[in-house]
Simulated assay, not measured.
Amino acid sequence: MSSNDHTFIKSLMGEIPLLEHNRPALSQSGVILDYLAKKLINLALKMKRNVVKF
Rank of each mutant, 00 (worst) to 15 (best):
L43S: 12
A37Q: 05
S3N: 11
T7F: 00
N4P: 03
S27W: 14
L26W: 10
N42V: 00
S27V: 01
L40F: 00
S3E: 01
I9V: 05
M13Y: 03
P17V: 08
L26S: 09
D5W: 06
I32R: 09
I9Q: 14
Y35D: 12
L18E: 08
E20N: 07
Y35W: 15
L45W: 00
Q28C: 06
F8T: 11
A25K: 14
H6W: 02
D34Q: 14
R23F: 02
K38T: 01
L18T: 12
I41A: 10
Q28P: 01
N22W: 05
M13E: 11
A25C: 06
N4L: 15
D5F: 11
F8A: 06
S29P: 14
H21A: 13
L45H: 05
S27T: 07
G30M: 09
P24Y: 10
S11P: 07
Y35F: 15
N22P: 02
S11R: 09
S2C: 04
I9S: 05
N42T: 01
I9G: 03
K10M: 04
L43D: 03
Y35E: 13
D5M: 10
A25E: 06
T7D: 10
F8E: 06
K10H: 09
F8K: 11
L45C: 12
M13H: 08
Y35H: 15
H21E: 13
K39A: 12
I9D: 07
I9C: 05
L40P: 00
Q28S: 09
S3Y: 02
L36N: 12
P17T: 03
L12M: 05
D34N: 09
S2E: 01
S29H: 06
L33H: 09
S2K: 04
G14T: 02
N22I: 04
I32N: 08
P17S: 09
K46Y: 00
N42C: 11
L33E: 10
G14V: 02
K10P: 01
A25L: 08
A44G: 01
N42K: 09
K46C: 02
N22L: 12
A37F: 15
I32G: 14
A44Q: 01
S11F: 10
N42H: 01
K46R: 13
E15M: 03
L43A: 15
D34K: 07
S2G: 12
L26I: 13
A44M: 00
S2V: 02
S27N: 15
M47K: 11
N4R: 10
E20C: 11
G14Q: 10
L40W: 01
A44C: 03
V31N: 13
K39T: 05
K10T: 02
K38F: 00
L33R: 06
